[in-house]
Design a protein around this nucleic acid. Structure first.
Length: 459
RNA sequence: UCCCCAUUAGCUCAGUCGGUAGAGCAGGUGACUGUUAAUCACCUUGUCCGUGGUUCGAGUCCGCGAUGGGGAGCCA
């Protein structure tokens, strides 16, 4: 019977006849016996296959090279060796697909930069195997988290006409001939385009998500998001996945509560359901990772008002390259100082000056701040950005006018404040930043299967 | 987009004062009764990123370009 290696090891029945298929990671041969480390992606360590010289094709087995796909029939035995509990005593080893000596993955450590250039092969390595098993497990856990709390999962559109969401440059979606578009007063005439207007790939599902929250109370989206910004950093990608919950009859404090519960839940998932991977990351990627994640899972998050954060930064006597002053946005150096030095863990910054935030955020009573929040974590920086939304029609309209946002394409959005409006709040969490935070990987390109960044859309 | 750094064997890197290139790993062959990125012996491998310049002579110095990395901005 064919089994995945992980299932076989979990069953752990000695003398059990079985068949496994996978790829050879390493082969150690001596005169009498050969050891094959076989991995099928179902776990990190794979299984040790033992082939004795009594096998007919023992000499051929000893020449099997790294990367070869093989099928092994045999019996599970307790291993007399020290590195593993079980091993598979082979009755037959069959080569399914060979790999010659030009196979780029060697039995040694490669740099992440090199592995990025062979992104189609890197999932066969220990590190990337662990990253993508963790990523998959977290994605499923996110749906479980919201499902258990009766949040509705909504698929917001990928193609959108609203380019005024303020979240960033969008990729144009068009069927017009780029070399010779139909013109109107010298400009491309998008009325003749496929959708009869300018469209692009979504930069956020929030506005549509709000419409669903005002019908289903609690909803979330989880899907691809696109930003055409020329960002060249270890934490930005042109295509990434975002989770955006939205709750009706909720304020900023409820929003932060949800975000905190959510992050801590996912920390526990990583520790409890990806134990082997977390041990590996702790050993090879970031020393002390498990302890860091455990402390986040167990302790409450700090909450600091923006005004208070400015005060703390000014009183810290730390030297910054950018000024710290009420009304200015916090720079990366400030955010890092707050989460790494002052708090030493995740911290919410709440109630930012309204002039540095988006039009849809709820204006506070003080007349100068909005009910916005950012969750900052050590190492990654901003992992969540959210807010309570402006639910009062007149205030929202006034704010849009002040900021020069055309209301015509957003009449549908204003409708939600026109009839049955209510306080509501939500946030956006960058999925890849979460994976980085939980794995210790420090480049977003190494937690995305085939990353898209400026100048890169290979594979 | 801006600032800094890098690019040498399949991979990771060394290369002094400018004198035509080396190590480890991988790979190959052999040895080895149970190995853990096995070990031991021997062997193979180069458009020194590209391009122009300085020089008797450039991997090395200078200009330009490409690519990669780190940091910043924008943000999730």
């Amino acid at each position: 019977m064919k089994m995945r290696i992980r299932e076989l090891l979990e069953a752990g029945e000695a003398e059990h006849n079985c068949t496994v298929s996978g790829w050879v990671r390493s082969l150690r041969a001596s005169k009498e016996v050969a050891f094959i480390v076989l991995n099928d992606g179902s776990n990190l360590s794979g299984i040790q296959v033992v082939a004795g010289r009594e096998l007919d094709d023992f000499q051929a087995i000893c020449r099997i090279s790294t990367g070869t796909a093989v099928r092994v029939e045999g019996q599970l035995h307790r291993s007399p060796g020290t590195g593993q509990q079980w091993e598979l005593m082979a009755d037959a080893v069959r080569v399914i697909g060979s790999a010659d000596d030009s196979y780029p993955l060697q039995k040694k450590r490669h740099s992440f930069e090199y592995l990025r250039s062979i992104a189609h092969l890197r999932p066969r390595t220990n590190t990337f195997g662990a990253v993508f098993r963790l990523r998959s497990k977290l994605a499923l856990a996110i749906h479980r988290f919201f499902g258990e709390r009766n949040f509705l999962y909504v698929h917001t559109p990928i193609i959108t006409a609203s380019d005024c969401e303020g979240a960033g440059e969008l990729f144009r979606v068009t069927t017009l001939d780029a070399a010779a578009p139909p013109l109107m007063n010298g400009q491309p005439d998008f009325r003749q385009d496929f959708f009869g207007q300018r469209t692009g790939l979504t930069v956020s599902g929030q506005l549509e998500g709000e419409m669903f929250a005002l019908a289903f109370s609690d909803i979330y989206t989880f899907g691809p998001t696109f930003r055409a910004e020329n960002s060249n950093t270890a934490r930005h990608a042109s295509e990434f996945w975002m989770i955006e919950p939205e709750m009706a009859f909720a304020d900023l404090a409820d929003d932060a509560d949800l975000a905190e519960e959510f992050i801590r839940y996912l920390c526990r998932v990583a520790l409890e359901e990806c134990t082997e991977e977390m041990v590996f990351f702790d050993k090879h990627v970031e020393q002390g990772l498990q302890e860091r994640i455990r402390s986040v899972a167990e302790a409450g998050f700090a909450r600091i008002d923006y005004t208070e954060a400015i005060d703390l930064l000014r009183r810290s006597n730390a030297q910054f390259s950018y000024p710290v002053e009420w009304g200015l946005d916090l720079q990366t150096e400030h955010e890092r100082y707050l989460s790494e030095q002052i708090v030493g863990g995740p911290v919410f910054i709440l109630n930012y000056p309204r002039d540095i935030k988006a039009f849809y955020m709820r204006q506070n009573e003080d007349g100068r701040t909005v009910a916005a929040m950012d969750l900052l974590v050590p190492k990654v920086g901003e992992i969540i950005g959210g807010s309570q939304r402006e639910d009062r029609l007149d205030l929202l309209e006034r704010r849009m006018a002040e900021m020069g946002i055309a209301r015509e394409p957003l009449e549908w959005y204003l409708d939600s404040r026109r009839w049955g409006s209510c306080p509501h709040a939500g946030f956006g969490l960058g999925f890849e930043r979460l994976v980085m935070y939980l794995s210790g990987m420090d480049n977003i390109r190494d937690v995305i299967p085939f990353p898209r960044t400026p100048r890169h859309a290979e594979f």
